[in-house]
Design a protein around this nucleic acid. Sequence first.
DNA 1: CTGTTAGCGCTTTCAT
DNA 2: ATGAAAGCGCTAACAG
Lengths: 332, 332
Amino acid sequence: MWRVESRVEVSGISEVARLAKVSPSTVSYALSGKRPISEATKQRISAAIDELGYQPHAGARALASQRTRTLALVVPLRSGIDLNVMMQFAAGVLTRARDHDHDVLVLTDRDETGLARVGRGRMVDGLVVMDVESADPRIQVLAQLRQPSVLIGVPDDPMGLSCVDFDFAAAARLAVTELDGRTRAGAPLALVASPPAVYERGTSFALRLRGAFVEACHQRGREAIVVPCEPTPASGRAAVAALLEATDQPGGVLIHNELAAPGACPAAREAGMASVCIEPESLTDGPAPGGDRLVIPISAQAIGAAAVDMLMDQVEDGGVAGVQLMAPRLTR
Amino acid sequence: MWRVESRVEVSGISEVARLAKVSPSTVSYALSGKRPISEATKQRISAAIDELGYQPHAGARALASQRTRTLALVVPLRSGIDLNVMMQFAAGVLTRARDHDHDVLVLTDRDETGLARVGRGRMVDGLVVMDVESADPRIQVLAQLRQPSVLIGVPDDPMGLSCVDFDFAAAARLAVTELDGRTRAGAPLALVASPPAVYERGTSFALRLRGAFVEACHQRGREAIVVPCEPTPASGRAAVAALLEATDQPGGVLIHNELAAPGACPAAREAGMASVCIEPESLTDGPAPGGDRLVIPISAQAIGAAAVDMLMDQVEDGGVAGVQLMAPRLTR
DNA sequence: CTGTTAGCGCTTTCAT
DNA sequence: ATGAAAGCGCTAACAG
């Protein structure tokens, strides 16, 4: 059986121009819309374009226009990160990038050489950086680049770079308000929190959450009990048990520990405590473990999308850098 | 507190040339190694390069050299695919791509417009396509592109494109050989297989596995029992139970169903049947559910890496397209 | 071993 | 509303 060699011919902008009986520049302008083109010409051009299957050469375009129509997504693939959540982020970024007519280059280097290569080499118009730590060596490098970048997470010193994150402080306040309304006045409120290691690393979001939680409790005349907790269901159970020993008045509990929640949540319910969980939305997809629960979902996808929006704002030269915290909402 | 505006200056190849007191082309050749350069000049050039923090403009380079140093990784983000496995693939691809001095553009479009854009627009030197179905509309498009691509999975008609996959047939034979040695001669051998839906879709790997399994059994004078199975542990248990009802002679069982394995495997053990599991390596990381088991691991990462190697072979104009099946191995 | 130079295919001033 | 032409920063012939 013979197979026809039908590798499609590549045609440049000038072939399109010839076919449409206009000059190359007119085709370019028709494509970019940066100049009014008569309806008739537009028609002929677009006809020519899809007759030839024309697609502008990305490199040439980048060279001439100083714009690559490509974004970098930086995801250090270190162990111990939740792949589901990561993919949610990525999906948000990828999808929204396409909405802005951009493709996405993914970097997984753990060092910062990739940033330099991609930035200095002008392969991208901007960068979205995931998994940012409080003092992240990459921030230095990013701040030097001509391209804007958006960090997902808030480091100690953003050095003028944009940040997007979930508003953990607001989430804590929201939860405390809710728990305050659902528990006997004066009873203590507890926070089943991130593992001690997370606090030791000085991870900003955990600190922000804890601070806001304690403050909100005190404002309502509630005692605040913070229980750091290892990321396993068993530890979650244990944490709640410890809570019950520490106080004889079962109050409410805020659970912010994805992996411990499956243990802590039912345990709280059994003990007759009101509970609110803060958790990534992906996990919410499954069947809710134990009837209707109060949860404050974190949509990684939405955060990723927001990051791209901010980034494109800066790329398009309108926006300035800033910090955007995504408002929490409470659902059952 | 004031912050110094120290956005690094961008310098072109000619600035490097000036600083190193050579011509631009010499710098270019020094970088590409396509021409012998005296040691002394090399030194001055590389000194100049890192004094200026020079990084070649990717677009210009692509325009002039017809090479982008970028690969596309195509991953349709449809639901029902295992994220862990996907990330393993991706990690393999990303890492190996860097070994070949290439970056990776990730496409998640479900349609084939992305392929066309990236291919016709010459944004990449080649494409790795995941999650290929037996009759995949993307194959048509890929076959027209000037860039080579390699499919992960083997479709009915690869149309001259390269394919990489795990050798499921060989895995079945390996498993049968093992089970044959571990069970009473003449006892039937069973295959706890993929869900019916997978067979209905005509998914090639499932068919190849089943065919080889049945044949290998018959060669050894064994009855072959095939039990399609839904992807849940419970279904796995049920499948084994059904097996025990169907025959009074407990033989051996080959389990090829990632999600059912956690149920089927212990059930087989309890019933005193020998078992072998074919499963993605990522799942193997966790604690083995029930002592030492026989497993034939599939390393998604290795497959991804192999795909990139094949692709780069073709990009570098040496290699020709072909099908590569990764040999299975048996471990405890 | 090194330099000169002509493009690569597009965007974007200038002109008209 | 449209054209002509000058680059964008690099690579790869051609020349020595």
